[in-house]
Design a protein around this nucleic acid. Structure first.
Lengths: 235, 235
DNA sequence: ACAAAAGTGTTACACGTACACCCATGG
DNA sequence: CCATGGGTGTACGTGTAACACTTTTGT
């Protein structure tokens, strides 16, 4: 077998920052670590890169192993490389963040991994540099969501504008004018109005919408600017 | 020594996408590869991650080895992981992109590495997946420069507004109204007017400006929007 | 009838854009 | 004195924000 002689090989892990939204709050999915050291402590879901797979494949595999879900929105965030980040041995970690519809995976939380959803604002202590990863993912989510229609990934197939607004408000920890918000969202023409209303939260009821998948993909790169004053909110 | 038993270790490389601007054109710094295979072909400047260093440190080391420069603007782009990307053995590559003032490193191009500046629009064929890396860096540069005052990193300490405009026009491959451009830039109050003018390009002469480093750092996160219609230009 | 959330209409204003025009100066 | 690039003044229109007001319907 060919080799580059004399170079050091390292272990590579993939860790997933998994976000969900339950209709009111943004949540983070974490697991109880099964390995020593730090066994039993809270950790991002992760695993080691296998010989024949790419990082994207590893991230998909790891997410599927925990949640059973496939085709989830996921993107590579950053590679963490402090030589001392893992006390056992030198391990790079490539962080991915994922957005999932929490309803697809709320009930049957994996007992194998002791998975649990935490409020993003009240996450427990995490091992190693996982907190740093989570903070970066949060920041990236805010950044990206200000420019791209990414947050639909957190919602079920049918959702109302007020629900969408609550999600955006949660992400940016602020409130928006509901009247302007709905107009702005609808002006993108990314949503298809349904016949039914959701009457859970008001007597009048709010119409359900579905995402126009075709337009969504076509316009993903467009700067949407749902968010007033992004420069102030993203500091 | 502790170990995670049974896991595969891989080689990790760092490759740098190095951009420069000569006053008219955006350029890319590449080297002639010194190793087999593909020896003699054009390649991004790179090297292997060493046991005791972080990726950022490796990137700094590699850039310094080639150019002698330190404190250069650099950011981690993405980790590339196709199992077959390097035919010799499985090697992850973490790509970094760097912005340097070309005048700091134009003359004494390293003969050790056979370094050469190419017009970004006329880059030669590159080995492995380096073209993909370069394309991603280009895209990221456009993206980031639309929102953050990052392109000053490519200019010398003193520069004129028309020079800055040529740079922006090069990045986005378009032209802007010079009258509006200068006003927009100056309205950020990030620039400090100098007494001298640059008369190389006009009889009237254009005032030199320096970057207000303090404000630059403080406002880096602010969305600057130098670019009209970013959504159209970034597609 | 009333309360409470959803949604419409309207207005003021900031901002981006376009473009006529003035400025400075070397040849 | 004119050609050339640098730069200012200003007018117009679009898009955003603010907010009064209407709609719907369960209790």
């Amino acid at each position: 077998m060919n080799r580059y002689p004399g170079e050091t090989h390292v272990l590579v892990a993939v860790d997933c920052i998994i976000f969900g939204f339950d209709g009111n709050d943004i949540k983070l999915l974490v697991v109880q670590r099964g390995l020593k050291p730090e066994k039993g402590k809270w950790s991002l879901m992760g695993g080691f890169l296998q010989p024949q797979e790419s990082l994207d494949q590893a991230a998909d595999r790891i997410l599927k192993k925990l949640t059973g879900l496939e085709g989830v929105y996921m993107e590579q965030l950053q590679t963490f490389s402090d030589p001392l980040r893992d006390p056992v041995e030198r391990t790079l970690s490539v962080a991915y963040f994922a957005l999932i519809d929490i309803h697809q995976y709320e009930k049957q939380l994996s007992t194998d991994y002791h998975a649990e959803w935490f409020l993003l604002k009240k996450t427990p202590e995490l091992i190693f540099d996982h907190k740093k990863m989570m903070e970066m993912a949060k920041r990236q989510l805010r950044y990206k969501a200000a420019l791209h229609p990414i947050l639909f990934e957190l919602l079920p197939a049918k959702f109302t504008i007020p629900q969408l607004q609550i999600l955006y408000e949660g992400i940016y920890d602020t409130t928006f004018d509901n009247r302007n918000f709905s107009r702005k969202v609808l002006s993108t023409e990314l949503l298809i109005k349904q016949k039914e209303k959701d009457k859970a939260n008001s007597k009048k009821g709010a119409f359900y919408y579905k995402l126009d998948k075709r337009k969504y993909k076509a316009n993903f790169q467009a700067f949407l600017n749902f968010i007033p004053n992004p420069d102030k909110l993203l500091m």
